[in-house]
Design a protein around this nucleic acid. Structure first.
Length: 229
DNA sequence: GCGACAG
DNA sequence: ATCTTGTCGC
């Protein structure tokens, strides 16, 4: 798919925050209307520290048929961490390599499912927002643990939810139980999608396991590539 | 000052 | 994220 050049890269935490502030106005958060993505892409990155502080990584993207959940295409790229890990600035670590993986796709996915946060972020601009704005595609985040927002515990059964709220009581995401008796996942909107739709996709993508098939397959692919390369 | 902190 | 053994459960 077509992906433009990434913006100027930050060398400091302050510069990274400035970039988030500059891109945030481009977010499309209103009701996007009827959406029926034919394909959904999952993205994930695996790391291997090289001892010296230089982190090798492999970014993978796996495209699934939205209905059958069969894999229709995949791409994986080896790279180097582009920024240190700083909570809230996580996107700057793997964004360049993830964009390169997307460029190698023949397909243009109808939705991006990122492993991490979207709006459920201290600065309301998590990886899913960043990736959505840069590609122009609908994007959402599904995180395995909480980064931001307070919430009650969702019920014990698959499908149970609880809203994620910021300090002002605004809904920034939703805690979703994808399987009976397992820990929930943290869903939030990234770009051009609403929370109800995002949760509906997260649940549909998790028919058998806690994590969405998109995330599981991208995780497997990125780990395998890390060993090979 | 003391916790919290996506991956 | 990654480092790591055994172990409880379907």
């Amino acid at each position: 798919m077509e992906v433009g050049e990434v913006h100027a890269w930050p060398s400091t935490v302050e510069e990274a925050r400035d970039i988030q502030d500059r891109l945030r106005p481009s977010l499309e958060l209103g009701d996007p209307g009827p959406q029926r993505p034919a394909t959904i892409a999952g993205l994930d990155v695996s790391y291997a520290g090289d001892g010296t502080g230089v982190d090798r990584l492999a970014a993978a993207v796996v495209v699934l048929d939205a209905v059958t959940l069969e894999t229709v295409e995949e791409a994986v790229v080896a790279g180097i961490a582009a920024f240190p890990y700083v909570p809230g600035l996580f996107a700057f670590r793997e964004l360049p390599t993830l964009l390169e993986a997307l460029r190698r796709l023949d397909t243009t996915p109808g939705l991006l499912v990122c492993d991490g946060a979207g709006l459920a972020h201290p600065r309301r601009f998590g990886l899913a927002c960043h990736l959505g704005v840069l590609t122009g595609l609908p994007a959402m985040g599904v995180a395995k643990t909480r980064l931001f927002g307070r919430h009650d515990q969702p019920g014990p059964r698959r499908g149970a939810t609880a809203d994620l709220l910021d300090d002002g009581g605004e809904v920034v995401g939703r805690v979703l139980r994808t399987q009976d008796g397992t820990r929930p996942v943290y869903v939030s909107v990234g770009h051009r999608i609403d929370l109800d739709t995002a949760c509906r996709h997260a649940l549909a993508l998790s028919p058998e396991f806690r994590l969405p098939e998109t995330t599981r397959r991208a995780d497997r692919l990125s780990r395998a590539a890390l060993r090979a390369g």
